[in-house]
């Protein structure tokens, strides 16, 4: 049984058909890529999977359950984690607080009562977990900096760390490397691979950086004008002339 199965998802915005009967499967522990030209509908698909948007047609199954009527936070609790193309960081909070909050939310600890009996302050263990993720992402120096004053690339890493800390079964990343320099992109690829290998997290990656995509993903979906153009093992798909014409451009 696939971890995630999206069945013929369609979504229109007025006259614009952003998604037309898209199917997509992710197996447990798999590293899947999703590419496509600008405006192909990748982010829209993510939003449909996560419940930010309601698809006009189609259904989403995750771990065998139909997600259609679930609000976003419930889906997240089931094990869907994601990052955003347009940052959704908690402005005003420090990097460390981002990680602590994510950790808290996953453990479902606390609540009003817990706070009142004094369990609210972060324990040393929680702090250590936050710091471990900070180190994994190379943010150690910036842990106590408010996110608003981070450069774009670092802010993306914070989002990634936040999602990783919720220990999702499936991590959905929307252009995580945009704004990162080469070193950090490769570093991120390494981190993602280790997250996948060590925690068995499946990853669905939307990315325009083909170098990174071909490095990390084993299977690739190509979306164009809201329709699934191709799917298969990454190297073959990327080499396919149709894909090259639609997305990659000239064979460089």
């Amino acid at each position: 049984m696939p971890l995630l199965a999206a069945e013929s998802i369609s979504k229109h915005f007025g006259g614009i058909a952003a998604l037309v009967g898209v199917d997509l499967n992710v197996e447990p522990g798999e590293f899947v890529g999703l590419v496509g030209p600008n405006g192909a509908g990748k982010t829209t698909l993510f939003n449909c999977l996560l419940g930010i948007l309601k698809p006009n047609r189609g259904r989403v199954f995750f771990r065998g359950r139909d997600l259609s009527r679930m609000p976003m936070h419930a889906r997240a609790r089931l094990g869907l984690g994601r990052t955003f193309q347009r940052l959704e960081v908690f402005s005003g909070m420090t990097v460390r607080d981002h990680f602590l909050v994510a950790d808290r939310s996953r453990r479902k600890k606390g609540g009003l009562f817990g706070d009142l009996v004094g369990q609210g302050t972060p324990t040393r263990r929680e702090d250590a977990r936050a710091e471990a993720v900070g180190e994994l992402l190379g943010l150690t120096e910036l842990l106590d900096v408010p996110v608003d004053s981070l450069s774009l690339g670092h802010a993306r890493l914070v989002e990634l760390g936040r999602a990783v800390l919720t220990e999702p079964k499936l991590l959905m990343l929307d252009e995580p490397s945009s704004g990162l320099d080469r070193v950090e992109t490769m570093e991120m690829a390494r981190v993602l691979q280790s997250v996948q290998a060590e925690r068995g997290t499946a990853i669905l990656l939307v990315e325009h950086d083909l170098e990174m995509v071909s490095l990390v993903t084993s299977r690739l979906y190509v979306l164009e004008f809201g329709e699934m153009l191709a799917t298969g093992p990454t190297p073959q798909v990327l080499a396919h002339p149709v894909v090259r014409r639609a997305y990659v451009g000239d064979v460089a």
Binding site: V35, N38, G179, V248, G249
Partner: peptide
Amino acid sequence: DELSLGLAPIIVDE
């Protein structure tokens, strides 16, 4: 600033 940020490869070339 960040010329090609978020652009598909084919557009970046253009």
